[in-house]
Amino acid sequence: MSETVKKFLYVNRKAPYGTIYAQEALEVVLIGAAFDQDVSLAFLDDGVFQLTKGQDTKEIGLKNFSATYRALGDYEVTKLYVEKESLEERGLTLDDLQNIEYEDEDDDYAEKPSIRLVTRAEMAEVMADQDVVLSF
C-alpha cells in the first residue's frame, strides 16, 4: 500500500479487561498489518497479562479476545517482546503465557515462537530502534 517501510512498535501496558486499551490496540495491529510495515509488539507492566493462558471472561460479560494473539502470525506479526521483569514482578513465567507461534516462510514454514523474552534494558533498545511507537 505504501513504499515506505517503517518500524512500528505497539506498546501494551494494561491488563486485558479492566480497560479497553488492549482490545483497541489489537484492532490497530490488525488494521496496520495491511500496510506491510515492520511490526513489533511490546508487553510490559500489566500488559503481560494480555498473553496469559486460560483466560475466561464468561462471568464478566466481556469478549475474550485472547485467541487473537495466536492468530497474529497469520498477519505477519511475529515479534512479540515480553519484558522479563514485568513477568517476575507479577509472579509469572513464560509457562503462564499462551504458546504463540508463526510459520517462518524463509525456513520451510517451520513453526517458531513469536514471544521473545527481553530484559528491561533490552526493551529500551527495542524501543530506541523504532520509527513509530504507539503506546496503549
Binding site: 515506505t4 490497530v28 488494521i31 496496520g32 495491511a34 500496510f35
Partner: peptide, 20 residues
C-alpha cells in the same frame, strides 16, 4: 474515518507523538 488513517499518519510523519 478508519484506523488506516492512523497507520498512514505514522508512515508519512517524521514524528508521531501520542498524548494519553
Amino acid at each position: 474515518s478508519g484506523l488506516g488513517q492512523l497507520i498512514e499518519m505514522g508512515i508519512q510523519a517524521d514524528r508521531t507523538v501520542t498524548f494519553g
